[in-house]
Design a protein around this nucleic acid. Structure first.
Lengths: 204, 204
DNA sequence: GCGATATTTTGACACTGTCAAGATTGATTG
DNA sequence: CAATCAATCTTGACAGTGTCAAAATATCGC
């Protein structure tokens, strides 16, 4: 589409200018299209219009590139949760919670391949998660834990130990996403019903 | 270890004799040791003492081999569930249920790589699940659904729609397994507490 | 023993990640 | 402005992957 290798004057330039960002964007697209496996460093370089090994000057590894993409996913999740928590004054808490659950699952489905990356073995077991990715994911869970604690104190959520409750509720959401994303529950027509069943299980 | 290329008389033979089974076994071992990614058709052939392409006369694909291994995993799960259901007369239903949940999670952790295979994208999204694997997994869920329906009628489990309840409870178990197996919850020291929290959420 | 069939091997191809060494450019001095 | 230097990009190379086609070898039915 857009020629990423031309400067403003239109002349081709040896140096790309903003290769790192272009790589990230192109890689994210490729993953969204065909999953993590369909992303090869060589095809990525090709797509951006650069030689095979050029990306290695901006990402030490394929692993590092994947971690960077995963980070973006965590940031999106973070903003979704934050928006929900901010809306907690206007509506009933239960409605806000329900909306969050729905949004979480739908968002994870819309960016399924990225979601896979965020929590999949590719990064967390095969590769080594970047330090910044580790921190980001920790903060993300901490944020969830904080909200769950609040919702539990108010009496909306069941359970006693906030940490355990946060873990289990998240596991439920995560499990649902996995089963949907991995194509094991092919029926996403009953997604709302499933969400409501899950929520009912969590509520007091 | 054992020389799989010798006949009973000890002579090396061109034909292996039981290559299919040997391949399955060796592949299962390799996966258990280093995950699905560490299994390459070539290394597998090497390990069994046979040339690169020999396995292709017993498994059309790498995918088919993986499906065969996944099938074994489903059979093990199936037997675990069946044993639990059979024990449902001797002990309290709740105790049986709790024991099953614990066993499910522990077993999935003990065979984590195989579990990954059974429900991971490798088979269900990248490759094509074998017809027999699809059927087996369907039966497996059906079995779970049947038990959940029973437990719900007796009043042990919450919820109304049995199908939804089966889906959600399984999603919870699955999500927990995933988070544990993928190394996102590194603390498996509180595994029992987490299980009990999950169960408490499911029970009436 | 002979032909058919099942099984295994060798050769080949396109693809992967990534390292080392060279080429080119933009930035920073003098 | 010229020269140096660091950043950036390219080419070449290597070991590894899945898997197809064709040839070699063994086993089995007759």
């Amino acid at each position: 589409m857009t020629d990423t290798k031309t400067t403003t004057s239109g002349r081709q330039s040896y140096h790309h200018g903003d290769l790192q960002q272009s790589l990230l964007q192109a890689a994210t697209e490729m993953i969204a299209e065909g999953g993590t496996e369909s992303l090869s460093m060589r095809k990525l370089a090709d797509r951006v219009g650069v030689s095979r090994t050029a990306p290695y000057h901006h990402f030490k590894d394929k692993n590092e590139l994947l971690c960077a993409i995963a980070e973006q996913g965590f940031r999106r999740q973070e903003s979704i949760l934050n928006r929900a928590r901010e809306a907690s004054g206007t509506e009933s808490l239960q409605a806000v919670f329900r909306q969050y659950v729905l949004t979480y699952i739908e968002s994870s489905h819309q960016h399924r391949e990225q979601y896979d990356l965020m929590f999949g073995r590719e990064i967390w077991r095969n590769g080594q998660p970047t330090a910044s990715l580790q921190q980001l994911s920790k903060e993300s869970f901490q944020n969830w834990l904080n909200w769950v604690t609040e919702l539990q104190q108010v009496g909306l959520l069941r359970g006693e130990n906030p940490l355990r409750t946060a873990q289990i509720t998240w596991a439920t959401l995560h499990g649902l996403c996995r089963l949907l994303n991995d194509g094991i529950y092919t029926e996403d027509s009953h997604l709302q019903q499933m969400c409501d069943s899950a929520i009912a299980m969590m509520l007091n």
